[in-house]
Each structure stands twice: as structure tokens, then as C-alpha cells.
């Protein structure tokens, strides 16, 4: 398994009148085709980590390599191109453009790249079929449900077949049924396209779809657990670590033991 993402000695300190340390010496690596979850309590630095890795924010020290390239060393316009060619993003609040139809939203990364219309049409049809959103392609974003919106966002993130997909709380705004659909779609894509994925979430159910979950607490790596054969058992393990993180872990485990 080749290394898709490698993070070395990453530190982030937010300046200002009272500097605060958001991340301390983070090291991690994600392999090709791997689906990794990042979990941790509020304020632990999950989103900061995602922002640094996706080059939305710059680290104070340390290095990030995606597919062997350091996005922070790229020029701004190169970075933009790198993003729309090799990275995909899914956000909690979908970030679809209200002025465009579902279909137009999906092809946006390709139009920016100057792709041929024929190719774009083929790709839209293909991905819409895969995600089950063919019937809403002509609709406007305010005419569709949250689950449909998130599937549209996934379609937009995947239409250019990126090597790496970042998902920031993709199930945060969805009901449990839609959340399940979205996670299953992500898993299916991960399996069929071998896209490496990094999922930041609060939701233990969503995290249980990952191959591996990394826990962060107060800006430092806390723990890492792997999915075994059973998703159910993995879910239980995640819950255990979470309660440990919450501070009352010992009480819980003594009760259970």
C-alpha cells in the first residue's frame, strides 16, 4: 500500500493577543484506498487538522505531503489546480450554489478545468446513476432534501475522480436514514474507485464505516483503532474510546466490567 497522505510533526498555533496551541506534533499517514476517520471531542483540533491537511490553512511548523506533493509549497494558482484535479471536498452544510441546478453544481469542477461538454455530460450521467440522483438533476438546490443535497455534493467531489476525498462532518446535518445512505455511498466509492478518504466526524455510527479511526484530544494524537471483521464491534470500540476521552471512562468501564 503506497502512502497517499503523510503528515509529519504538524504544529498549529493561533496567533493573536492570547496565542493558543491548536495542534501539537501530529504524525499520521493514510495509505492508498484507505478510509480513515478523525474523531475527538469539541475543540480537540479535528477541523484544524483537516484544514491543514487540505491546505485551507497553513501550519505553523511541520509538513504535509499528499501523493508526494506538499500543497503548502505550491503557488496559489497551482494549489487551486491541484485541488480541482486531485482533491475532493464534502462539507457539513453541503456548500452547493443556489444559483445553479443540481447538474450544474456537479460539473462545476470540470467546467473550471475547461473540460469538453460531451465528457462532462457523460460523467454526470454516470455518477448520478451511481448515487441515485438522476431524477433531480434539473432541480434547483432549494427544491431538494438534505440527503439529496449531500449526495449532490459527493457527486461534485467525485466527478473528477480525485485521489483523495476530504469529508468534514458530512452527516452532521442529516437524519439517520440519510446519514446511513451517505456513509454507504462513501464506502462504495472508496471500494470501487480506491479513493483515499479522510472523514472528520462526531458521529460514532458514521466513524464505524471507516477502516481506521484516529482520536485527537487537546491537539494531540490520543489513540488509534482499526476495524476488525465486524462493524458492530468496531462501533462498540469507538464508543469506548469516546467515553474514555470524555473523562468518565473509568466509571463506565467499571460498571461494564
Amino acid at each position: 500500500m503506497t502512502e497517499m497522505l503523510s503528515v509529519r510533526q504538524l504544529n498549529k498555533i493561533y496567533g493573536g493577543k492570547v496565542p493558543s496551541r491548536a495542534l501539537t506534533d501530529i504524525n499520521l499517514s493514510i495509505g492508498d484506498g484507505e478510509f480513515v476517520g478523525i474523531m475527538g471531542p469539541s475543540g480537540s483540533g479535528k477541523t484544524t487538522l483537516l484544514n491543514l491537511v487540505a491546505a485551507i490553512d497553513a501550519p505553523t511548523t511541520g509538513e504535509v505531503l499528499i501523493n508526494g506533493k506538499n500543497p503548502h509549497k505550491l503557488k496559489k494558482s497551482e494549489l487551486a489546480r491541484f485541488r480541482r484535479r486531485e482533491l475532493g471536498f464534502v462539507f457539513q452544510d453541503f456548500n452547493l450554489l443556489n444559483t445553479l441546478t443540481v447538474e450544474e453544481n456537479i460539473v462545476l469542477p470540470l467546467t473550471l478545468e475547461g473540460e469538453r461538454v460531451r465528457t462532462m455530460e457523460e460523467k454526470v450521467t454516470e455518477i448520478a446513476k451511481k448515487l441515485g440522483i438522476e431524477s433531480i438533476l434539473k432541480k434547483r438546490t432549494y427544491e431538494i432534501s438534505g440527503g439529496q443535497a449531500q449526495r449532490t455534493a459527493i457527486a461534485r467531489a467525485m466527478i473528477h475522480s480525485p485521489k483523495f476525498l476530504f469529508a468534514d462532518e458530512p452527516t452532521g446535518n442529516l437524519d439517520s436514514k440519510s446519514a446511513k445512505d451517505v456513509m454507504e455511498i462513501l464506502t462504495a466509492i472508496n471500494r470501487s474507485e480506491r479513493t483515499a478518504m479522510m472523514l472528520v466526524t462526531h458521529d460514532a455510527v458514521a466513524a464505524s464505516y471507516c477502516h481506521r479511526v484516529i482520536f485527537i484530544k487537546d491537539g494531540q494524537l490520543f489513540n488509534e483503532i482499526h476495524c476488525g471483521d465486524s462493524r458492530q464491534a468496531f462501533f462498540q470500540k469507538i464508543i469506548d474510546v469516546l467515553s474514555l476521552l470524555g473523562g468518565n471512562a473509568h466509571d463506565l468501564s467499571t460498571i461494564r466490567v
Partner: peptide, 15 residues
């Protein structure tokens, strides 16, 4: 808000 979202998807400053 809109442009910060599109920038994350990959929009150069010139565009």
C-alpha cells in the same frame, strides 16, 4: 461565503 466554498474546490485567484 460562496467564493470561499468554491475556492476550496479549486478556483484560482485570477479566475
Amino acid at each position: 461565503r460562496k467564493f470561499s466554498a468554491i475556492t476550496k474546490l479549486g478556483l484560482t485567484d485570477r479566475e
